[in-house]
Computed example of a mutant assay.
Amino acid sequence: MHLEHLEKLSNIQAISGFEDDVVNYIKDVLKRHSYDFKEDFMKNLTVFIPGRDHSFKFGLFAHMDEVGLMVTKIKDDTTVKFAPVGGVDPRVLVGKKVKVGKDVDGVIGFKPIHLQKKGKESPSFDNLSIFVGESSAVNVGDPVFFTTKFNSCGDFYVGKAFDDRVGCAMMLELIEMEEKPPFDLYLSFVSQEEVGLRGSAVAAANLDIDAALVIEGTTAGDNPELEEAHWATHLGDGPVLVAVHSGYVIDKRIFEGLKSVADENDIPYQVKRRTAGGTDAARIARTFAGIPTGVVAVPARYIHSPVSQIAKKDFENTFKLVKAFIESEVFVR
């Protein structure tokens, strides 16, 4: 598959509620094709790809937003205070470069260690500030974006927003393909997942689909210093299948279907070993009659931080599994 989409999407700055640049990128890709698409008031963008058989309708979902920050107070000393947008640990922010709004560069600062009480103070949103140099160009409510650039490092990709630009990149790859899917396919790029699964609720309510699959970037937790018993997933072991997570037990038919398709196509996979966190699947499955929904994900280290890491072969194999699952029609058999 092409790497272009993943690299460009990773470099786009688009926290929850400010997904416009991702939406515009997707629209630019769609100009090369004739598929119908709709955009709603939540900035969800849903593309319709007609299948060979119109009796079954399947939805794919990936969220466009990333975690970030927002300006809450402007001080006279050219620093600004901020709050998290989505789940961000303040301890990963010290010394990081950011962009405030679209034009103002900043650096996140913390009290020097020699001024701390016994050198053991912990970073928090109360005691971190962004130095911007020129505070008159900043307003309360401005988004604050991480600025890490995508990079290829041996067998890995390093960058920001792999949660969930990996899913967006895979759906764009499906749009670029010429062959028709076996059934009607709806590809929904949704907003504001990181602040309460908001966009997917609206997108799913506007779709009359029979089943769905969420493509995600999920936590690995396999830091080298940790024992394997503490890992959720492991980089290099293949796509992650989710059996249960916060708020939702995954539909068994889709979960088992993904496993069988992976086995039939010799695609390695792993089952997530922790249940913390959630995905748009929980929201989609609670919409109206309850849409049966599954989750497949790319394992990523250090998600919800300014920089994360994925294995190249995990990204490729996850796409292979999604494509093979659609082509197998296993869920409609």
Rank of each mutant, 00 (worst) to 15 (best):
V190L: 07
F288L: 04
S122N: 12
V22M: 14
V104C: 02
S136K: 06
N206L: 15
Y35C: 11
T46D: 02
N223Y: 10
E19D: 01
A289K: 15
S34C: 06
K43A: 09
M42G: 09
N44A: 06
K75N: 11
F110D: 03
L187C: 05
A243R: 15
V330T: 07
F325C: 01
Y302W: 10
T46C: 03
D126P: 04
V104Y: 00
D76E: 11
G236L: 10
E327P: 00
E227S: 11
G141K: 03
H245C: 13
G290D: 05
D126M: 02
F156H: 09
V98C: 08
K8T: 15
V249K: 15
V298H: 01
D266A: 15
D20S: 10
D210H: 14
G87M: 09
L3A: 09
V261N: 06
S200Y: 08
V271E: 02
L6S: 13
V71T: 01
N127W: 02
K96E: 12
D184F: 01
F150R: 01
K73M: 07
V202K: 13
T79C: 07
S129D: 08
D164L: 15
H63N: 11
R52T: 03
A201K: 14
H33Y: 12
I267H: 03
P123R: 00
K38C: 06
A297M: 01
F110P: 04
I215V: 15
V158C: 11
A62C: 11
G196L: 03
H54C: 00
K57M: 09
D184E: 03
E121R: 01
T318C: 15
L258G: 00
K149D: 05
E193Q: 15
M177W: 06
I15V: 13
H63P: 01
G294F: 00
I303V: 13
H5S: 08
R165I: 13
M70I: 14
M171V: 14
F189K: 12
K120I: 13
K313F: 12
E134D: 13
T293R: 03
V166N: 10
L187N: 04
M171I: 14
L207K: 09
K27S: 11
G294N: 00
R274A: 08
V330C: 02
V271I: 15
R32C: 04
P239F: 01
V47F: 05
A169T: 04
I267W: 02
Q116F: 02
V296W: 00
V100T: 07
E327M: 12
E176N: 15
D89S: 11
L128Y: 02
K312S: 12
M177V: 11
P224C: 08
A169H: 03
L60G: 10
F125T: 08
P50V: 01
K320Y: 04
T46R: 04
V80C: 00
V23W: 05
K320I: 11
